[in-house]
Amino acid sequence: MAGTQYLDTAQGRRIAYHRTEGRGPCIVFLGGLKSDMEGTKAVHLEAWAQAQGRAYLRFDYSGHGESSGTFEEGCIGDWHEDTVAAVGALTEGPIVVVGSSMGGWQALLLARAMPERIVGMVTIAAAPDFTEDGYWASFSDAQKQALEDVGQVELPSDYMEPYIITKRMIEDGRKRLVLRDPLKLPFAVRCLQGTADTAVSTETAVRLLDHATSDDMRLTLVKDADHRFSDGPCLGMIEQAVLDVLGDG
């Protein structure tokens, strides 16, 4: 496997990536919060794309994986800038975006920024607006005060060490919300959601489906699948969803 390559962005961040050459549209994987491009789904989809001779891109947001910066410094807007920079510099022509968890929110932001580039989208446990509807909505008065006084709060995670959520992340997230204003997705969209997901609810998935405007958008609920959505059957469903939006399903 080729080694990690790096992209220096206009914002002064260094983004680590792996790019596979092949026929388009290029498949772009957008990972979740505190995830990285070595995750099961990102690597599996790369091998699948290579086997089919398809172009593929996976990368680490700043503060994630091998990219520059620390997680605590970042926010939704920074990672959106990273995504736009990576897509702009490392892909050409039409793309299919595959967004997992927070990457689903990033995929929707990308659809607003460059709808003309996207010909299909697959979301996996998409978590749009989670800084507001998940974190802020569930914070106690003491946690909200801590954000003001200290600038951050610590939240436990089911999957890794605690998350440090900063005041900047919350405030920046409010500028990036996608479920409050019209959300046009003028391409095929396939949303995958596990019913045993403890991080993103099926209600969130249905809310996105109801809110977005698209002529070809489908939500698939998978009984007992969790947030990782990474076992064999789930990975197969991701492959099929990509083929579906490509028109090859």
Rank of each mutant, 00 (worst) to 15 (best):
Y159A: 06
M114G: 04
R117E: 04
G134K: 12
S140H: 14
G151Y: 03
G120C: 08
E171I: 03
V97H: 08
V84E: 13
D149Y: 05
K167P: 01
A86T: 06
E132R: 13
A113W: 01
Y163S: 12
V84A: 14
S157R: 09
Y135M: 09
S100K: 08
A107Q: 07
D133Q: 08
E154R: 12
W136S: 02
I165F: 11
D172S: 08
E161Y: 09
S157A: 10
S138M: 10
A107G: 15
V97R: 10
D172N: 10
L108A: 05
I165P: 07
E132H: 11
A126G: 15
L147C: 09
A113H: 12
T91F: 14
T123D: 11
I95C: 06
V153R: 03
D141L: 13
Q152K: 14
I118Q: 01
Q152L: 14
A146R: 15
M160L: 10
Q145I: 02
I118S: 02
A89W: 06
V153F: 02
A126Y: 11
S138K: 15
S140P: 11
V87S: 02
I170S: 06
F130Q: 00
E171M: 13
V97D: 01
T166K: 07
W105E: 07
D129G: 12
M160V: 04
E116H: 12
V84C: 14
D141K: 13
K175H: 11
A107M: 11
S138W: 04
S140E: 11
F139V: 03
L110R: 02
A107P: 02
A111N: 03
V87R: 00
